[in-house]
């Protein structure tokens, strides 16, 4: 049973075609890593999944609901799909605790005490319970990104999207974020991760995809992808990145 189905997804920015017909399916609990050179459309594609970008052709079905312009649908899907951004995008005017509890309280209409309890639990899980009352500006990049993961998880999402979560981090902070993501993957979360961290892909991914120029050029298991790629483009990409 696949939780996300995409069929012939196409997307244009003005004259530039960013996605040239992407089709894929993801099963529940699967961890998918998407890599590719910049401008290949990988970020655009996962942003289409929770409709931060609108696709113009094709269809995307998330958890049985097709993505259309219907606002109610979009809000329901966004509540089910958590997203972690490259630049964290925490709310700077709220404390870490408020950042995490905001959506459960206002969107899920949960009580404050329940949400705070759950938020503490999540902060423990990502390893920074002591930072609950600080403001995002007072945290390091790695800590901020872990708060962002906790914020997305607070909504009990069925799917987590990661849009280059480690690209804006200093090298020594990448590990702490990746650890949190690995732990999440092991707990059985459905994840789509856009990243250049090939170590992460090797270790936890169920499948790896390579995007180039708006097309999916290779889809493979991690072992095959790294050791025995089918496509020449993949070989070139791997030779440049590794």
């Amino acid at each position: 049973m696949s939780i996300i189905q995409a069929k012939g997804v196409k997307k244009w920015f003005g004259d530039f075609q960013a996605l040239k017909g992407i089709s894929m399916e993801i099963a529940e609990g699967e961890v998918l890593v998407i890599c590719g050179p910049s401008g290949s459309g990988k970020s655009t594609f996962i942003r289409c999944i929770n409709r931060l970008e609108q696709h113009q052709e094709g269809e995307i079905v998330v958890d049985g609901t097709e993505l259309t312009n219907d606002l109610k649908n979009i809000e329901t899907i966004r509540a089910e799909v958590g997203m972690v951004f490259q630049s964290f995008n925490l709310f700077p005017h709220l404390t870490v605790m408020q950042n995490i509890t905001l959506a459960p309280i206002w969107v899920r209409k949960k009580s404050r005490s329940d949400s705070e309890e759950k938020a503490m639990e999540l902060l423990n899980r990502v390893g920074i319970p002591e930072q609950a009352d600080k403001f995002p500006g007072q945290l390091s990049g790695g800590q901020q990104q872990r708060v962002a993961i906790a914020r997305a998880l607070a909504m009990d999402p069925k799917i987590m999207l990661f849009d280059e979560p480690t690209s804006a981090l200093d090298p020594e902070m990448i590990k702490e974020v990746l650890d949190a993501m690995k732990e999440l993957a092991k707990s059985g979360m459905t994840m789509i991760v856009v990243t250049h961290e090939m170590g992460f892909a090797k270790e936890v991914a169920d499948r790896v995809m390579l995007f180039d120029e708006g097309m999916m050029v290779e889809e493979n298991t991690p072992v095959e992808f790294f050791d025995n790629p089918k496509n020449d483009r993949t070989k070139l990409f791997l030779s440049q990145i590794l």
């Binding site: 966004r78 997203m83 951004f85 630049s87 925490l90 959506a103 206002w106 914020r151 997305a152 909504m155």
Partner: peptide, 25 residues
């Protein structure tokens, strides 16, 4: 722009987005 996207991504309605995220800042 990221603030709007983050608010969208956690499923906030347009009014919540304006009232809780955008206007205070």
């Amino acid at each position: 722009k990221g603030q709007y996207e983050a608010a969208d991504a956690i499923g906030m309605s347009p009014f919540q987005k304006i009232g809780l995220i955008v206007l205070p800042q």
